[in-house]
Nucleic acid binder design. Structure first.
Length: 806
DNA sequence: TAATTTACTTAGTAGCAACAAA
DNA sequence: TTTGTTGCTACTAAGTAAATTA
């Protein structure tokens, strides 16, 4: 049996003082191999065959069959034989599970626990309508009904305001009408019937007719070509794309595919809101102890720096250097301020603190009034109407100027992020929609596009790195985002059918004579086993972080006989530290890849993400490196929930869920910095526990006395205590014990999770249908797991069949 | 084929509001 | 009522990956 893996420990350079490896919660780092149930192998194989017959989908040959013998020889082995490590925890449990019958209904997994099979009442469905993103017509709809236009609002329960009525017609597109990928979320085959029902509100013919009207009598295809008129250069490409998807126009009911081609037919929005202009405060900073006069522009930059005086950035010379270089440009060469060391920003800092304090001290009414005023100003920017559906816009506020807060050792940290003007911004909007008024008088947008093959509403070039683009997108609750979210999970589910073959293939590749093939095999293994990111190439003007393909020799240390010690900075400069036993062939391969290289050389010198992904695509259609993360995260959740959910009340089941969530977060190395108050909180808990232990001791003494018929001892302050009978004392002792235990658990859990971020995986990696179906099966209110935003984001998953398994 | 551009997803955190405990 | 804690949201940086260009 492989030794348990160490959890990646936790130390970002930026925060190194705050974080330390919490635990070595060993078992948790094991590779989620739940797919490896021997029993499901056969099932999966039959699935592949069924799918191909049913869908006439030749696709890429499922990698499940790299060759007949390889399949026989590999798949027949328990997965543990091929992945002796990393499976430590889950593997052993799975070993007991190998009794499933071959299931002829491909997408309906069988359950060991027959209770699980019982679909709960559909009360759940109705519950989902309380979520922020209901499929029901909202008040807004009702109001608009008389004007044929019906806008379905997606993504918020907040009050509506009017978006200017447009010449185009509005129709409903419920989120449940997401494009089916052939892997229905409804194993029962009743895939998303709701959409049709709801569309009944508006007869198809009517919709089509309206669309035609809105299209100014253009035939749909013509119209699309017209809408897609970004630039002459692009017309050919776009037309091709459009042709591919043009059959959508047969019925407006079919939402445009999100994968490629057309994303929308009509798009209306009001542009963006800009931050208010800078307000000169006149507080003078000191230079060599003397107050300095600054122009508003100079003062603005000084203030940006001053408000960061209490951040970690002040300990970063690069931050200060970059700031000073940019500030100097504003100050001018001859300015009295010549170096940062002689600057004293505290007067501005203190002024800012006072302003914050003032704000805090405002009465509730004042705060409310300000909030309402802000809402009033922003309301019109908050929404877009996409194909007649009112959708929330994600980031409708233009980013304000400030100092760049790059993470880790970012070479550009501290640089001045200049103010974005309308003339920096390109707007994307429907051809027939009114072009948003530029909110700053006398200025105008950089460009207006009408590109319906993209989902962004606007963009500007990042002032820090002009090659980078900042986009304005719809919110996560929007239909468009929901659709691609669902597609993401469907792709990950598809990997389930191929994973055995892929694993067999890369295992073969470990000993390939072709070095590129060998590196691809080992890299894929690491991505699968350790959930590493792909690792794109990075520029020199970014923080020096790596992913799998960009690992350096110094990041992976072989520890004989067959372990690897990983230590590198990944995304966001979060440190990944892990020591893991690997297959001997992998160990040997890594040694070979390292030989003759220096520490800073690429470990996989024959490899980059495009080569890797090109290879993965040969194994499964659409497969890329990141799919493994989604797959391993979701299958781990599904597996852990099914194994660990026992009886008990909802609260106990929520604990099971959180435990599974935590395992996934650890696998994905999702970290957070330890909160400033963490140690104080632990200290306080310890004090309380000690106090309770004291009480317990007294009670026990009293019990002994009470049994002898003696009165209790006096209190610590000398006062007499109430005389209780032994039974009452026993009850009290039990209560106190329970309290102590609860606090101990609380403390343990707090300590355990202090560096683990649970939210990231919930938002991005865990198929919400697993959660929703589990909640339905076990009568756990979904609100216990998903907050309001997640309910809105995952609206598309709410009607999943309770029997759904990933 | 490599480099660049484009479009999108994934990520941690600051700040604040809601809630709980004292 | 005050203070501490928790959880949510907005924010924006930093990834992935495909398409396009040189």
């Amino acid at each position: 049996m492989a030794p348990p893996l160490k959890a990646p420990s936790v130390k970002s350079p930026l925060t190194s003082s705050k974080i330390s490896d919490s635990s070595g919660k060993a078992s948790s780092m094991g590779l989620p191999n739940t797919n490896s149930k021997p029993s499901t192998l056969a099932t999966d194989k039959s699935k592949i065959i069924n799918k191909q017959i049913e869908e006439e989908k030749p696709l890429t040959e499922p990698a499940a069959e790299p060759s007949d013998d390889s399949e026989d020889s590999e798949d027949d082995k328990p997965l543990s034989a091929r992945h002796p490590v990393g499976f430590s925890k889950i593997k052993s449990n799975n070993a007991n599970k190998g009794t499933l019958q071959l299931d002829t209904k491909p997408s309906i997994p069988k359950y060991e626990d027959s209770d699980d099979e019982k679909p709960l009442s559909s009360k759940f469905q109705s519950k989902s309508s309380t979520g922020a993103s209901t499929r029901k017509s909202c008040d807004f709809d009702e109001e608009k009904k008389p004007i044929v236009a019906k806008i379905h609002k997606n993504g918020s329960a907040s009050k509506d305001s009017s978006i200017k009525k447009s010449s185009i017609m509005l129709k409903k597109r419920p989120a449940t009408e997401l494009k089916s990928t052939g892997h229905s979320s409804q194993p029962s085959g009743k895939a998303e019937p709701k959409a049709e029902d709801e569309e009944d509100d508006l007869p198809i013919s009517q919709i089509t007719k309206k669309s035609a009207t809105s299209d100014k009598k253009l035939s749909p295809v013509k119209k699309i070509t017209k809408v897609v008129s970004t630039s002459l250069k692009k017309i050919n490409k776009k037309s091709k794309k459009v042709m591919k998807t043009s059959n959508y126009s047969k019925s407006s009911k079919v939402p445009p595919g999100s994968g490629e081609g057309q994303k929308w037919t009509t798009l209306i929005h009001n542009g963006l809101i800009f931050p208010p202009p800078y307000k000169h405060h006149g507080v003078k900073m000191l230079y060599k102890g003397k107050p300095v006069d600054l122009t508003p522009e100079q003062e603005e930059a000084a203030t940006m720096f001053a408000v960061m005086l209490d951040t970690d950035y002040m300990n970063k010379p690069k931050f200060k250097e970059n700031f000073m270089n940019d500030w100097r440009k504003i100050l001018g060469k001859k300015h009295v301020i010549q170096n940062l060391e002689d600057c004293d920003f505290t007067p501005i800092y203190e002024w800012h603190q006072k302003e914050k304090e003032k704000k805090k001290q405002m009465s509730t009414e004042e705060k409310k009034a300000i909030k309402e005023e802000k809402l009033k100003q922003e309301e019109k920017y908050m929404w877009a109407i996409v194909d007649g559906v009112k959708e929330k816009v994600g980031n409708f506020r233009v980013e304000p100027p400030g100092l760049f807060r790059g993470r880790g050792e970012h070479p550009k940290m501290g640089k001045l992020k200049k103010r974005i003007c309308p003339s920096d911004i390109t707007i994307n909007i429907g051809n027939d929609a009114q072009i948003p008024e530029c909110p700053i008088p006398g200025e105008s947008w950089k460009e207006i596009r009408h590109d319906n093959t993209v989902t962004w509403l606007a963009f500007w070039n990042d002032p820090i790195n002009p090659k980078e683009i900042k986009y304005v997108f719809l919110a996560a609750s929007s239909t468009l985002k929901g659709q691609s979210d669902k597609e993401k999970y469907e792709k990950a589910r598809l990997l389930k059918d191929y994973i055995q073959g892929i694993r067999a293939a890369y295992t073969k590749g470990f000993t390939s004579k072709d070095l590129t093939k060998k590196q691809i095999a080992v890299a894929t293994y690491l991505i699968d086993k350790l959930a590493l990111r792909a690792g794109n190439e990075k520029d020199d003007d970014e923080a020096d972080t790596v992913g799998c393909c960009t690992l350096k020799v110094e990041n992976v240390e072989p520890l004989p006989p067959n372990s690897l010690k990983f230590d590198f900075l990944g995304k966001d400069s979060i440190r990944y530290q892990n020591e893991v036993e690997v297959e001997p062939a992998v160990f040997k391969a890594i040694q070979q890849f390292r030989s003759g290289k220096k520490g800073g050389d690429d470990l996989f010198d024959k490899l980059d993400t495009s080569k890797l992904n090109a290879h993965l695509k040969e194994l499964m259609p659409g497969l890329t490196a990141k799919v493994f993360r989604t797959y391993n995260a979701s299958i781990t959740l599904d597996d852990m929930l099914s194994r660990e959910t026992k009886g008990g009340d909802a609260a106990e089941k929520v604990v099971v869920y959180q435990h599974a969530n935590k395992e996934v977060a650890i696998i994905c190395n999702h970290q957070r910095t330890v909160s400033k108050s963490h140690s104080a909180q632990i200290l306080r808990l310890n004090e309380k526990i000690e106090e309770l232990k004291g009480v317990l001791e007294e009670l026990e003494t009293d019990l002994v006395r009470a049994k002898k018929g003696k009165p209790p001892l006096k209190n610590t302050d000398g006062k007499p205590k109430r005389n209780m009978n032994p039974e009452a004392l026993k009850r009290k002792i039990a209560q106190t014990n329970a309290k102590i235990e609860k606090m101990e658990r609380e403390k343990e859990s707090k300590e355990d999770l202090k560096t683990v971020a649970l939210g990231t995986s919930k938002i991005n990696y865990l198929d919400p249908r697993i959660t929703v179906a589990w909640c339905k099966r076990h009568e756990v209110p979904i609100e216990k797991i998903f907050n309001k935003s997640l309910l809105a984001k995952f609206a598309w998953s709410m009607d999943v069949d309770p029997s759904f398994r990933f």
